[in-house]
Amino acid sequence: SGNANTETLPSGWEQRKDPHGRTYYVDHNTRTTTWERPQPLPPGWERR
């Protein structure tokens, strides 16, 4: 039932692989990409 990797990503993020097989992350909220895995927001924090 779903990929465990995507469940731990913050809302709006997606994990992808480039043509060389390297994993990167897409932030659909800001339309940016990063090599660093995004950290889920700490409990009690809200994204503004």
Rank of each mutant, 00 (worst) to 15 (best):
G2Q: 13
G2H: 03
G2S: 14
G2D: 15
G2T: 15
G2I: 11
N3K: 13
A4N: 15
A4S: 14
A4T: 14
A4P: 11
N5P: 08
T6F: 08
T6D: 14
T6M: 13
E7H: 11
E7K: 07
E7Q: 03
T8A: 09
T8Y: 11
T8K: 14
T8R: 13
L9H: 07
P10I: 03
P10K: 02
P10R: 05
P10L: 00
S11Q: 12
S11K: 11
S11M: 08
G12E: 02
G12P: 02
G12Y: 00
W13D: 05
W13E: 06
W13M: 00
W13T: 03
W13G: 03
E14Q: 08
E14Y: 00
Q15H: 10
Q15Y: 07
Q15D: 11
R16L: 10
R16P: 01
R16M: 09
K17I: 07
K17N: 07
D18Y: 00
D18M: 00
D18L: 01
P19Y: 05
H20P: 01
H20G: 12
H20V: 10
H20A: 12
H20R: 13
H20N: 13
G21C: 02
G21E: 00
G21Q: 03
R22V: 11
R22L: 08
R22D: 11
R22G: 04
R22E: 09
R22S: 10
R22T: 15
T23A: 13
T23R: 06
Y24G: 04
Y24S: 02
Y24K: 01
Y25P: 07
Y25W: 10
D27K: 01
D27H: 11
H28Q: 04
H28G: 08
H28V: 07
N29M: 03
T30I: 02
R31I: 00
R31P: 03
R31C: 10
T32K: 06
T32A: 04
T32W: 01
T32V: 09
T33M: 06
T33P: 00
T33C: 12
T33V: 05
T33A: 06
T34L: 01
T34W: 02
T34A: 06
T34K: 03
T34D: 00
T34E: 02
W35C: 03
W35N: 04
W35E: 06
E36R: 12
E36W: 12
E36V: 15
E36Q: 15
R37L: 07
R37I: 05
P38V: 01
P38A: 02
Q39W: 05
Q39I: 10
Q39L: 09
Q39N: 14
Q39D: 13
Q39M: 11
Q39G: 12
Q39K: 13
P40D: 07
P40N: 15
L41Y: 05
L41M: 13
L41D: 15
P42H: 06
P42L: 06
P42W: 05
P42G: 12
P43C: 14
G44M: 09
G44Y: 05
G44D: 13
G44S: 11
G44E: 12
W45P: 15
W45I: 15
W45A: 15
W45S: 15
E46S: 11
E46M: 08
E46H: 06
R47Q: 15
R47K: 15
R47V: 13
R48C: 07
R48W: 07
R48N: 00
R48Q: 15
R48V: 12
